[in-house]
């Protein structure tokens, strides 16, 4: 990554301009050209550094629902339980974390009721308790990782 790549990552994380030629505008701000900017971004997408340009949104506003859930999984069962949990298409992120509750995952569904169905199914298939922690209040959303 050179200086231009870093500038692109930092600037575009804050938002892509919503106009006819967004990359031309970005190029102008950074003293580059539209073609160079597009080429650099393509390289970074290809290498897996960046995933895509998309919206960050509150699923609840769009008729979907989310929750954060956690489980205490015995170490020797971790891989097995992990496969069961991840087999549900509604599971988004799934992280192993340093705590007695060692498996943390996000469930994203189209309806609020579906969340409970997924939790119930996971509990039945694993025999373990799922801790359900839906968000009650959101104070800040602004993932920004400068490079």
């Amino acid at each position: 990554m050179d200086q231009l790549d870093k500038q692109l990552i930092n600037l575009l994380q804050k938002g892509l301009p919503v106009c006819e030629q967004p990359f031309a505008q970005v190029a102008m701000e950074l003293g580059s050209t539209e073609n160079i900017v597009l080429a650099r971004l393509q390289l970074m997408l290809d290498s897996g550094l960046l995933t895509r340009f998309g919206p960050m949104f509150d699923a609840a506003c769009w008729g979907g629902d989310f929750t954060l859930a956690a489980m205490e999984v015995p170490e020797e069962r971790f891989e097995e339980v992990n496969q069961i949990v991840n087999s549900f298409e509604q599971i988004a992120h799934n992280y192993q974390r340093t705590h007695r509750l060692n498996m943390w995952f996000v469930i994203g569904t189209e309806t609020a009721e579906e969340i409970f169905e997924v939790i119930e199914n996971i509990q039945q298939k694993t025999g373990l308790t799922v801790f359900n922690m839906p968000k009650e209040h959101e104070f800040f959303v602004g993932l920004y990782l400068p490079v």
């Binding site: 954060l68 298409e89 988004a92 799934n94 992280y95 192993q96 974390r97 340093t98 996000v106 994203g108």
Partner: peptide, 24 residues
């Protein structure tokens, strides 16, 4: 308080609505 570091990420996308929402 307690600090839980992640030791492994298993699935970074997949849920129907999850693709573009970063919530961990």
């Amino acid at each position: 308080k307690n600090v839980l570091f992640s030791t492994k990420a298993y699935k970074q996308r997949g849920g129907r609505y999850s693709a573009s929402v970063i919530k961990e």
